[in-house]
Computed example of a mutant assay.
Amino acid sequence: MDTSGLIELDRRIAGCRACPRLVAWREEVAATKRAAFADWTYWGRPVPGFGPADARLLIVGLAPAAHGGNRTGRMFTGDRSGDVLYRALYDVGLASQPTAVSADDGLELLGVRVTSPVHCAPPANKPTPEERNTCRPWLVRELRLLRPTVRAVVVLGAFGWQAALPAFTEAGWTVPRPRPAFAHGARVTLDADDGGDALDLFGCFHVSQRNTFTGRLTPEMLRDVLATAARTAGLPGVKRPLCSE
């Protein structure tokens, strides 16, 4: 477990200014703010991953939300997507509380780390392919640091899936050819190049409002993927009764 390595990685990510469009956007949002958060001092920087250095399960999203992670400085914190994700993690026993409102709210993840292939909030929630590729080395480094313990990954959405596959290859796992297509409930085993532990990759619809408000992704569907991935990773899985719909 390389705790110091992840701490240093997070520090370096938070100082990145590699993509001019993203730097300009995240800082503009932090300066103008949203009326509901006028009294907040926005983070306004790249948002590093969140969770323990010995995580057995990794969750990969898309990018921080302009008034969520870009405001609070923590992945999926302070926005509706995070409300859905952390509630589900709590329901299956992988988070200490069901809500995430600020970086100092006491939330702890249990055996799980959350990250994204793009660490800056992008305009319209749409990073460019060039921005995705520029940010990829951070994900590769994070995967290498987590490699001693991580055994399963849940990728939220097609963009994250497409962005993560090359990172898995660079980090030392073999991605099948042709590359597996994204689908909710997809499951692919990636063998380690050095004969070490394999990685089980799970696809899940993103926890965006578009998906959750329309019912494309329900809380039950999300809990099912998380619980299956947790069991595969060797985590306790569901510890408490699932909340009713």
Score class of each variant (00 low, 15 high):
G196W: 02
G196L: 01
G196S: 13
G196H: 05
D197C: 04
D197H: 07
A198S: 14
A198G: 13
L199C: 08
L199A: 08
D200F: 04
D200T: 15
L201E: 06
L201G: 01
L201S: 02
F202D: 01
G203P: 08
G203C: 04
G203Q: 04
C204L: 02
F205Q: 10
F205G: 08
F205Y: 09
F205C: 05
H206T: 07
H206I: 06
H206G: 09
H206C: 05
H206N: 10
V207W: 07
V207T: 15
V207H: 04
V207I: 13
S208E: 10
S208A: 11
S208G: 08
Q209C: 06
R210A: 14
R210W: 03
R210F: 08
R210G: 13
R210C: 01
T212C: 10
T212D: 05
T212E: 03
F213Q: 14
F213V: 07
F213M: 09
T214M: 02
G215E: 08
G215S: 04
G215Y: 04
G215M: 04
R216S: 08
R216Q: 12
R216V: 12
L217M: 07
L217D: 05
L217T: 08
P219S: 02
P219Y: 04
E220R: 08
E220D: 14
E220C: 03
E220H: 11
E220I: 06
L222Y: 01
L222K: 00
R223F: 00
R223G: 00
R223L: 00
R223M: 09
D224F: 02
D224G: 02
D224P: 00
V225P: 07
V225N: 05
V225C: 12
V225T: 15
V225R: 15
V225H: 07
L226R: 00
L226T: 01
L226V: 01
A227D: 14
A227C: 13
T228N: 10
T228L: 05
T228S: 09
A229D: 07
A229Q: 06
A229W: 04
A229G: 08
A230G: 09
A230Q: 01
A230L: 01
T232F: 01
T232H: 13
A233F: 11
A233C: 13
A233P: 12
A233Q: 12
G234D: 10
G234P: 13
G234I: 11
G234A: 11
G234V: 05
G234Q: 09
L235R: 04
P236D: 13
P236K: 10
P236A: 12
G237S: 07
G237I: 00
V238H: 01
K239V: 15
R240I: 08
R240N: 13
R240K: 14
R240T: 15
R240M: 11
P241C: 12
P241Q: 12
L242Q: 14
L242G: 14
C243I: 14
C243K: 05
S244L: 11
S244Y: 09
